[in-house]
């Protein structure tokens, strides 16, 4: 429980810190922190029910993207602003490093295993982002279409 609490708090602070490093301004820094908190929170919640790690990461990044799309519409700015810093807790930086350090110590078996694991996580995160973005686009286009129809009728 303490572990989870620490992770949630540090997920918030590390996203917040990266928001500063990526030159995000104003209140959006705070929203970025919330994004990181949300992404990791959903991942943890999913992990409580699911055994598939990649799927948990996918759900985490999907939740973050849904949040980012909403924020972007409200703040009238690109979605990227909220995804880049918010995805920090999910980003497999640690796993990527572990992969390469196995490579450096010539432990090829571990290198390939960890490498595939890292790749899988990166694919899961990207897929989570893209799925929500595409669904959002479909929703947006469908609404525009129905509006057009109504205008014609």
């Amino acid at each position: 429980m303490e572990r989870i609490l620490i992770q949630l708090i540090t997920a918030f602070t590390s996203s917040l810190g990266f928001a500063y490093i990526f030159n995000v301004k104003g209140k959006r820094i705070f929203y970025d922190g919330i994004g990181g908190f949300l992404a990791w929170g959903v991942q943890l919640l999913a992990a409580a029910f699911l055994t598939n790690e990649a799927l948990c990461y996918l759900l985490g990044s999907a939740a973050l993207t849904a949040y980012a799309e909403g924020m972007a519409r409200w703040q009238k700015c690109p979605t990227t602003l909220f995804i880049v810093a918010g995805s920090i807790p999910l980003i497999p930086g640690g796993a990527l490093y572990r992969t390469m350090s196995y490579g450096i110590s010539r432990d090829w078996q571990a290198f390939f295993n960890q490498g595939l694991e890292t790749l899988l996580l990166a694919v899961a995160i990207s897929a989570g982002i893209l799925i929500v973005m595409v669904l959002d686009q479909i929703w947006h286009n469908a609404r525009a279409l129905s509006r057009k129809r109504k205008a014609q009728a």
Binding site: I88, I91, L96, V123, I125
Partner: peptide, 19 residues
């Protein structure tokens, strides 16, 4: 390492490939 490692780049790279 998190300050230096291109984790975002890796994720974006895969996103670009899927797209």
């Amino acid at each position: 390492i998190m300050l230096l490692i291109p984790g975002i780049k890796l994720t974006n790279a895969i996103r670009d490939m899927i797209r």
